[in-house]
Design a protein around this nucleic acid. Structure first.
Lengths: 190, 190
DNA sequence: TCCTTCGGAGTGAGCGTTCACTCCGACATT
DNA sequence: AATGTCGGAGTGAACGCTCACTCCGAAGGA
C-alpha cells in the first residue's frame, strides 16, 4: 500500500546512508543495502533509477535537514556574539547527534561527483551566514576578512573536532562545545 | 640499470598519487595508473605486491615528507606566539604547494583501511605539537583546554581553507595565510 | 482472474591480478 | 671483434571475481 511504499523507500535510504557512512560509496554493494533494509536487490530499482540517484536523494534529504535546523537557530534580533555562540553550538550538537548523516555528507563531497554539487550547496548555506558575518563586520565586532576566511575560522574547528569525536579521539560534552565555540569566536571577533 | 628501476617505481607512485587524489582509490584502475606512468600493467606488480601495498608506500612517503617539514619548522627557543605563527604558516604553505599530496592523504584517511592508520599517525604527529602546546599552557599564554581541542582550533581552519583554496573557492596568498594563522592564534591564546 | 508489487538468480561489464612470453644489455667464449 | 648464451625487467591478454543492474515468476489484495 501507500504506507508500505514509503516505508521501504525510507528503509532503503536509511540503510544506504548508514552503510555508505561506514564503508564509503564504492565500498557498499547494492546487495548489502538490500540486506540491511530487509528487501530484495531489485526493489531498490523500483524506487530509484540507479545507485547514483539513490545517493543523490539521500544527500538532498540530509542537506535539507541540516540547512533548516541551521536557519532556525539564526535570530537577526540578537547581538552578533550571542548569535554566533548560538548558531555554532547548535550546529556542533546537530552534527554530533547525527553521526551517520555527517559522515555520509563527507563521503559524498569527497567522491568525484560530489565536488560539483559542493559549490552550489555552500553558496546556498552561505546566504544566511553571509548576512550574519556582514552584519558583524559592519558593526565592527568581527574582523574585516573575506567571508570565506571567516567561515573557515568558525566552521573549520567544528568539523575537525566533530570528526575527532566520532573517531573516539575526544569526547565532546556541552562544556567542551561551549569552550570550542567561545574560542573560535575569539578568532573571528575583532 | 639501477637508475631505470627507481625511475619506474617513482613514476608509478607519482601517477598513482595524482590519479587517486583526483578520482579516489576505487575510482582509479591499475590500467589507468600504468597508462599515466607510461608502463605496462604487469610492471606495477614487479615493484609492489598489490594495489594496497602501493597505496601504503605512497602514504608513508607523503606522510614522512609532511612530518619532517613540520618538525623542521619548530624551534623550541622561540616564544610560543612566534613559534605558532611560524609552524602553521609553514604548514599552510606546505599544503598549498602540494595539492596532490594533501588530497591523497585525505582520500587515504577517508577510505576504510586508512582509519586504523590515522590514530597511529596523529599520535606521531602530535608528539612535537603536544610539547609545543604544553609549553604554551605552562607559560599561561595558551588557553587551558585539552590538547585535541587546541589542535582542532589551530589545524581545523587551515585544513578547511586549504581545501577551499584547492577547490577554487578562495585564493590564499601570503597575506591571507598570515591573517588566518594570526586569527587562529586568537582562538588558541589565553 | 487480473494487476500491482516484490525478490533474487542471472547477466555482462569492469576490476585486480597473473603468467607465459618478449626483449635487450651483460658477459663468456672463440 | 664477433658470436652465442643468459638473466631478469617489462608486458598485456586472459582469468576469476564482484559489481550494478535486469527480468520474470511468485505472492497477494481487489
Amino acid at each position: 500500500m501507500e504506507k508500505q511504499q514509503t516505508d521501504k523507500r525510507a528503509a532503503i535510504m536509511q540503510a544506504a546512508m548508514e552503510l555508505i557512512a561506514e564503508q564509503g560509496f564504492h565500498g557498499t554493494p547494492t546487495s548489502q543495502i538490500a540486506q540491511r533494509a530487509g528487501i530484495g536487490v531489485g526493489t531498490i530499482y523500483r524506487y530509484f533509477k540507479d545507485k547514483d540517484a539513490l545517493i543523490e536523494v539521500i544527500h538532498e534529504n540530509v542537506h535539507g535537514t541540516f540547512i533548516s535546523t541551521f536557519t532556525e537557530s539564526y535570530d537577526p534580533q540578537l547581538p552578533v556574539r550571542e548569535n554566533y555562540l548560538r548558531i555554532f553550538s547548535t550546529l556542533t550538537r546537530l552534527f554530533i547527534a547525527n553521526p551517520y548523516e555527517i559522515k555520509f555528507i563527507e563521503q559524498f563531497y569527497n567522491s568525484p561527483y560530489g565536488i560539483a554539487k559542493k559549490r552550489a550547496d555552500e553558496i546556498e548555506c552561505d546566504k544566511p551566514l553571509f548576512a550574519f558575518f556582514g552584519q558583524g563586520i559592519q558593526q565592527q565586532v568581527v574582523k574585516d576578512l573575506p567571508f570565506e576566511i571567516l567561515l573557515g575560522l568558525s566552521l573549520g574547528p567544528v568539523l575537525f573536532l566533530v570528526r575527532d569525536h566520532q573517531n573516539g579521539f575526544v569526547n565532546l560534552n556541552d562544556q567542551l562545545i561551549a569552550d570550542i565555540v567561545s574560542a573560535s569566536w575569539d578568532a573571528v571577533k575583532r
